[in-house]
Design a protein around this nucleic acid. Structure first.
Lengths: 297, 297
DNA sequence: GTCAATTACGTTCTCCGTAAGGATG
DNA sequence: CATCCTTACGGAGAACGTAATTGAC
């Protein structure tokens, strides 16, 4: 049992035209070839599908039955092929990315908007998640790729650095530090510090630097940048946040000042599962983001 | 675009096993051939369907999309093939026959019951119709074949004589004719006669014989044998009906007496459209009836 | 080094088209 | 005899298997 698409097409053409010669032309084959194709099909399905003499062609009862199936098979084939083609042309599709909250709010939306304008048929979904969960979603295949400051292991992931993001000190305008154009980490010695939770990439990356700088623990340990802003504004201490998180933290009475340290930067990285290819739509977004990285630097 | 059933099967096998070697075995081809089959399929659909290295095999996003269609295509193919096979084996099917009322009530039911017992999966339908309408239904393809006393023209129909059916005189027991063992047509001279409608085969066949016999017209002209019985019983006259219609006419006070005349017989004939083959189920019924004709003679 | 997928290559076989054959009106 | 489907036959191309190659662990 091996029905080919061409055989199905031949069958349908003959069922419709009821002329071998005409159906053959429609299928772009010679009449003889067409006759053989029908004959082969009939032997494959094990039943005569057409009653025919040199003058008339008509479906047998078995042919009538088969024609229903043939129509459905042909329709499914057409649908499958056209769906693939439409996805290849990015007429339809879906792209899901996992992104750290800072970039999800500040940097990525603009890029996604550009993408959406060029590819209106593609449904975009974004998960804003912590760095750890980002890798998990990538590994499980729940997202096409991720963007985070914490690259995955090279064995399982493919990482592409977009740009280095500077950290900024977040403090009240009344703070003495607020007057400086740049902050050095040692300026924070003995200052109360509002921490992010340990599972976030900010905390994990800053941990060694902060202990070197001998900051004082405010006791606060929060998950969201918005909360950091609130705590700093309320006087619980200062904090350090990535550049693209500033918008989430800042409020009247607060300032953000760049931290001057070659280590106080974090690698904003696109991450995908190694060995798994991206969908066409996702690959296009990936490439677009790769090219647009200069626009922030 | 020409998807073959084998390619679909190969795709599904690989998508399920995620092993080329294993899927190749399942498809009964060598690993090398299988690899080529997948490669060909991918080039036909215009997209890479599997991510693979020598260690791991997994579906690409396009492969995921295609797998839905592939499952449906394979299911439709299986369904079409198995339906044809089941019809060939007469596990399922339908047979519709058009039959003249007399045979539909007296002769055919027993035959159909035998057929139904042997082929319980076949749905039987029967139209009891006049001879003219019988041919019409055959021609239109509304029935698989017909049984009537009026064969169709050989150009359009294929006729198979089942048996010759004798005509019987229908009269009251009090009628002088009722005492005879056989009737000759000339015995009916000047007798009031209850006619069937002109569209029926009985009337058409008997017309010349009756005018030769110089019967008298009762003025009654009816479509159903049951009505004939009623009219004869009520004294409107006598009538002549086919042997198998006797059961429809007879009632207390009436008798049916065979007509002795080489012309007072009618050919009970199976009729099908020339050049059109019967469905397997219908052909089996056709053949069964052909063989069972002796049982009546 | 071992195992799995792929590529190379020669063979086989399927499939196509040209041309002859046969049936029908 | 004209038309249309089918069969015959030869060549082109596809598909298969064996065997060598590449790549991953």
């Amino acid at each position: 049992m091996n029905l080919s698409g061409r055989a199905i097409d031949a069958f349908l053409a003959l069922a419709e035209t009821r002329r071998f010669a005409l159906a053959a032309k429609r299928c772009h084959v010679s009449p003889s070839t067409f006759s053989q194709m029908i004959g082969r099909l009939e032997s494959q399905v094990g039943a005569r599908l057409f009653d025919r003499d040199t003058r008339n062609v008509s479906l047998t009862p078995e042919g009538e039955v088969f024609s229903h199936g043939a129509h459905r098979i042909a329709a499914e084939m057409r649908a499958s092929m056209s769906e693939l083609r439409e996805r290849a042309n990015r007429r339809i599709g879906r792209v899901t990315v996992a992104v750290t909250p800072s970039l999800a709010s500040d940097w990525l939306p603009q890029r996604l908007a550009e993408y959406q304008q060029i590819n209106p048929g593609i449904a975009l979904r974004m998960h804003d998640v912590t760095s750890g969960r980002c890798l998990e979603l990538i590994l499980r295949g729940d997202v096409d790729f991720g963007i985070s400051a914490q690259p995955g292991q090279d064995l399982e992931f493919e990482n592409h650095l977009l740009f280095m993001e500077r950290y900024h000190l977040l403090c009240r305008k009344t703070d003495p530090l607020a007057k400086l154009p740049e902050i050095r980490l040692r300026d924070l010695k003995d200052r109360a510090f509002v921490h992010m939770v340990r599972t976030g990439s900010v905390r994990q990356q800053m941990m060694p630097l902060l202990s070197t700088a001998q900051v004082r623990d405010s006791g606060m340990e929060v998950a969201n940048f918005g909360t950091v802003g609130g705590l700093v504004a309320a006087g619980f201490g200062v904090s350090i946040v990535p550049e693209h998180a500033i918008g989430l933290c800042l409020r009247p009475g607060l300032v953000a000042i760049p931290v001057k340290s070659p280590k106080a930067v974090r690698p904003v990285t696109m991450i995908k599962r190694r060995g798994r290819s991206l969908s066409v739509a996702a690959a296009v977004l990936w490439d677009q983001l790769k090219l647009s990285k200069r626009s922030v630097g």
